[in-house]
Design a protein around this nucleic acid. Sequence first.
DNA 1: CCACTTACATACGTGGCGTATGTCAATGAG
DNA 2: CTCATTGACATACGCCACGTATGTAAGTGG
Lengths: 203, 203
Amino acid sequence: MKAAHKPRSEMIAETRAKLIAAARRAFATTGYANASMDDFTAEAGLTRGALYHHFGDKKGLFEAVLAQIDQEMCVRLNEISARAKTRWQGFLDENIAYVEMALEPEIQRIVLRDGPAVLGDPAQWPNANACISAITANLVALKAEGLVRDIDAEAMARLISGASLYAAQWIANSEDPGATSIKAVKAFRALMEGLLVAGKPAS
Amino acid sequence: MKAAHKPRSEMIAETRAKLIAAARRAFATTGYANASMDDFTAEAGLTRGALYHHFGDKKGLFEAVLAQIDQEMCVRLNEISARAKTRWQGFLDENIAYVEMALEPEIQRIVLRDGPAVLGDPAQWPNANACISAITANLVALKAEGLVRDIDAEAMARLISGASLYAAQWIANSEDPGATSIKAVKAFRALMEGLLVAGKPAS
DNA sequence: CCACTTACATACGTGGCGTATGTCAATGAG
DNA sequence: CTCATTGACATACGCCACGTATGTAAGTGG
């Protein structure tokens, strides 16, 4: 019987979700270039026809996958910064969490490696900008509180996220990620504390 | 007459150089994935046979191109840091030059975008490590001079180069690279000065 | 001078992407 | 209820690009 009679829109959403999920697995494991559309659509019980209908082309599907991952990342980051007691602490936690997320192989491969090659500069992605904005907003607020020095907030936000990203890459590829992670977080904290106005306690 | 009778090894080097040059142009303009081996080997007056003979496969040729670019970058960076009056100034100059080099479209495309997707994490590339080592060495020396705070040098070097890279991306893709560049360099300088022990002059 | 190696070119097979076309089910009007 | 229409897929086809296997001519050492 298969219960094949749900409303149409629901079926569509399901199909899209299945395609995205299968592609996400394939992209994460074999990489964008090596992922065969025939293979992973078949794995989802579909064909390339469905893919081209919904996403236009391979790149379109990749964008959808990346948007999904990006959103998940943002949600997690917001939860973390919301939990912190002080704004400064939230700022630190958020950035450190960013580093740690970049340790996950799926994020490494899809977001950090293939993403730029396929879609261009990450800073131009809609969501990346959202994440940057969050950091920027935090910095503006911290400046207003007189906690950090007077620096262009957006520029500093870019530099910081760059440092986080690179630190993440380093950790992920090191022999002992645990130990490296500790060193990286420590250095990162030091770098951030350099932004505080002299004499302020690091909360 | 064509003077076709040079020693063999010389002919080989010439062939390799021609292939690398043609591939470099193709990779820079159309990107790794879209560069057709038939096309750019023909442009060099050769066929894919030569390519496979010398470089094994497309990725092998890409590695050769990247090695060439990397070396050029290192030479330029070393020249710059050597010209500076103080070590701290050299350190700053070198990093800022790194940012500025990343503005060049060829470096953007080949080194920063396609490179990681094709060859994996840049931190693992032989030369990237060489550049990191240079920064690390500088930091160690600066710490010994008592100029910068006591932080793990390698970790900090990674963070710094990450910040530089990201800043470069940001500048390159902004509407007004000139203005953005000024903001970025200023913020970068501030970030670096946060590393100085309190009260030291920024030379 | 000859056997052998080397530096390429040519020919071929395979696989993956995109498009054009076909089909069947769901929807809405009368 | 019925029929026309739309939309969600599947199927079929062509093309291009990569890699490999094979051929060839020139150079090299004995």
